[in-house]
Amino acid sequence: MDIIHVENLVKIYKGGIRAVDSINLNIKKGEIYGFLGPNGAGKTTTVKMLTTMIKPTSGNAIINGLDVIKDQAKVRKMIGLVPQDLSVDDDLKGIENLELQASFYGIPKDDARERANELLKLVDLYEAKDRYVSTYSGGMRKRLDLITGLIHNPEILFLDEPTLGLDVQTRAKMWDYISKLRKEYGITIFLTTHYLEEADSLCDRIGIIDHGKIVVEGSPSELKAKVGFDVVDIVVDNPELFKNILNDVSDISMMDNKTIRFKVPESEVYLPKLFQKIYENRLKIQRIRVEKPSLDSVFIKYTGKEMREHESEEEIMRTMRAIRRAR
């Protein structure tokens, strides 16, 4: 049975904005599922509905067999949320944040401490647990935020933009921690992101969402396969002879007078056969380069726009938020 089952979920905000427009989801236990899409695509709204923060306008959402509207209280007990904005309390110590969170779930103090220490060690924060969160770096806060969402051992963890605003290195480290969580606890993770690399490296399955609709869904490699082709650039000592060998490939072009470019659906399968033929014809390969399709190309294919544009927009939004806060 699917741990998250969503049917025709719709959210229309006041003013008639269709933030989420009839989405369907089936997520298996233990999976890391990623919602990839630009800002305003409906990712956070979906998370809010699945985590009982807001009520759907219509449709069903079943979490571990429980309805998010009818069994709100039970759903809350089995999910953990790490919201988009940092949600740890600066004026408390690291460990106090965790203990406070544990008290919401009625976890006895000793158990809470034990669990907190375990989680703190997992994300390398144990040494800093008695410091005030106000002294933490951005990455440390995010890690603390991540584990406060796990203090009650939830079945499903919702991560809304878990690495938003982190630098590249810190982001890669967060990915390690998230993968580690799944390995250690076998927890199901639903995450939203607008970073292609994040979805690619972390998720078992991805749904690309745009204008409140899931436009395409699948594992990162399935999605890339849908765009079609791996691009191979090759330089050999005898291009003319080589072209004859490539008789089963239709899309061949000369990049310069030496480099031949061709496209194949699956280079992993095709290239070994090609090498065999090259060997048989006594050709020599001087250079070879294979480019796999990226999620970027998938995104462009299904939404008709670049993901990158939105990143800069996101930067602007973030700066604006920071300014508003500073006031």
Partner: peptide, 14 residues
Amino acid sequence: RRFGYLSKLIVAPI
């Protein structure tokens, strides 16, 4: 609400 703490409270079974 501003610092995101409220969303954590709302999702908690309290």
